[in-house]
Design a binder for these strands. Structure first.
Lengths: 201, 201, 201, 201
DNA sequence: TATGAATGAGGATTCATTCAT
DNA sequence: CATGAATGAATCCTCATTCAT
């Protein structure tokens, strides 16, 4: 087990501020003193663990995308991949910790943005593919993925908070509804010049 | 300044795990030892501060609602009230801390749910008012406020993370779009039996 | 329940240095602050509790002595009264605490001596009665009760230390042996001529 | 000076519950934090100090026994070695603390028994030697050393309690009396089969 | 790299103690 | 006599951190 795996596991189990260098050391089979060779500060610990987790996620995502070609399916795969099952999800735990620390640590905040943007860019790229192929409507892709991602985050938070009766399917259902509503042409009967009554924007 | 105000202020400034009992004591004008009379554990500190903050918010919200009668306006007020301005917002800091701790502390998780449900209930009540008056479409109110609230949470998290270029107005815009899209009847021309059930849901 | 009873009970249960003013207060139904009205210091606590316990013991002893007239029986009653049964004996717990503190607290040491001397005097008086009546041999009474009392103390200590297989009867047997051996005329050649088979054991 | 020496010295001076980790640290030339590396709890501190003290005592005793061969002399050496001089005797202080804590800490109680039994076994072995050689009478060795040891303990307790006028010689005298009385054949005139086995005096 | 004994600063925590009521 | 909120001086204890090996 790598140090990072160990770090991730311990943080997921106990939370960052209950995580001791010695815990990670024990799990990784090394001395506590040596763990510090890898993580000079606790912020490093968090950031490196998150990066490791997200890198792995991005690889998985890329791998998953290779299997499907329809933009709708591709977008859907990404959503499915990111929404957690009820219970403790290590990757999401790291995000919760990151969000909590970012307001007090500029380095973490900057790091958070970098990692998030990578994800938003991937989502946006898939949306644009769909728009290029005419499968998706012509919404502002950046803006859309931002709200989609925010929705996923908000729903996942609840999921991590001990759950409140919503199954993973119901969560996905909400996301699916949002995607369909925004990216699918609402009325086949008015291809263009539709006096679309839909509110602003 | 009450102990709770002091606690809230210190947590907002430094983050929960950098918060020292003595800091709160100093700010509240009492001994560190006596702060522990109020908050036996750090989880108590967090929960009581959050409760205090949310109670105040709910009072403000109620007060704000009294001034307007249109359900749409009322719903809008609540959204405006809850979305943070860029920069550090004490109330949202507490939420970030709560979300980060809930997965490792059942008491915090339970507490989180209770406070959140209060908010969701208020939102749902306003939505139902609008539906009763015919102003809003007939979506599942619980489900809708859940996703609206998740969207707000997700967007606010970004806002707290040092911001990423989005102004408060843009955030509110996204929320407004969601509300209009979901609660406003899309096509007055197909009052009933419309063969296209997709959009409204 | 009086304060002293409460103090005695708590010390017996938890040991003196694990005894908190608030524990005694709770048990006695009064505030911790008020307990200090009775016991300004922890040494006072110990000494007053011990005095109360020993006073009660002396009353019991006097009462018990009234029922028998034979010096041998009277002495025996005192021994039986003082030897503890296996398990925790509150009065003996206080003695253990007192002995442990006396070397570091002159006041406690002085107090210990006073209380002990009262007991030794009582024992010695009974021994002298027996000598006056010719029932006991003519040993140095002071010296004898000192060693008898030391024997009882030493045996009782073991009894309090979780016991080591010796029943109360066996302990008493050892004491009885000592008494008979010392206070009974050793030789059948004596005037009495009683071929008293008791002594040997 | 070893940590254990330091611990022993500090406990002897101030008593266990007035003993601070930092005191031991200072005396042993190490940080208070590191003292806890050796003694996780105060009970550990007591037990390890007592063990160290008793180990040293047993070595001394063995050494002392080598110099004499007569069982009577050997037994006598052990008694002399164990009886404290008036004033503070570190080893006996530890015993007082141990007895006081044993009733509230099973680990200490068990430990107490183990160390005590080692001592009783040594005494009993010497008594049996004397019986084998015909020098001592045929009392129950286990039972006898138990009461001898109890007597020594009881007398030593008084000695530690600030003393009460008894010199060390007088204490030893009492012990010597007990030994002679019990282990010496009372009547040289009836070498065997004497119906009166009662000891001297 | 890797160890782990040793450090020492820092904070939580405890409680005797006070004092206004 | 009695309270209990409030204090604040300890002290334990943890743990990141260092450093000789």
């Amino acid at each position: 087990m790598s140090v990072l795996e160990a770090a991730l596991a311990v943080i997921a189990e106990r939370g960052l501020d209950e995580t001791r260098m010695v815990d990670i050391g024990e799990r990784a089979g090394m001395s506590a003193g040596h763990v510090m060779y890898y993580f000079p500060t606790k912020a490093d610990l968090l950031m490196q663990a998150l990066k490791w987790s997200e890198d792995r996620f991005m690889v998985e995502a890329a791998h998953s995308l290779e299997k499907v070609s329809s933009p709708r399916e591709r977008l859907w795969r990404l959503v499915e991949l990111s929404v957690p099952s009820p219970g403790v999800d290590p990757a999401w735990i790291l995000w919760l910790e990151t969000w909590a620390r970012a307001p007090h640590d500029p380095a973490v905040a900057e790091f958070q943005r970098r990692i998030e943007d990578r994800w938003l860019s991937l989502l946006a790229a898939v949306v644009r593919e769909g728009q290029a192929s005419g499968e998706f409507t012509d919404v502002d892709a950046e803006r859309f993925v931002l709200s989609l991602s925010a929705l996923i985050d908000g729903l996942s938070i609840r999921q991590m908070g001990g759950g409140d009766g919503l199954s993973r399917e119901e969560l996905l259902d909400i996301c699916r509804g949002e995607i369909e509503r925004r990216l699918t042409s609402p009325a086949p009967r008015a291809p263009r010049g539709d006096p679309n009554p839909r509110p602003s924007r």
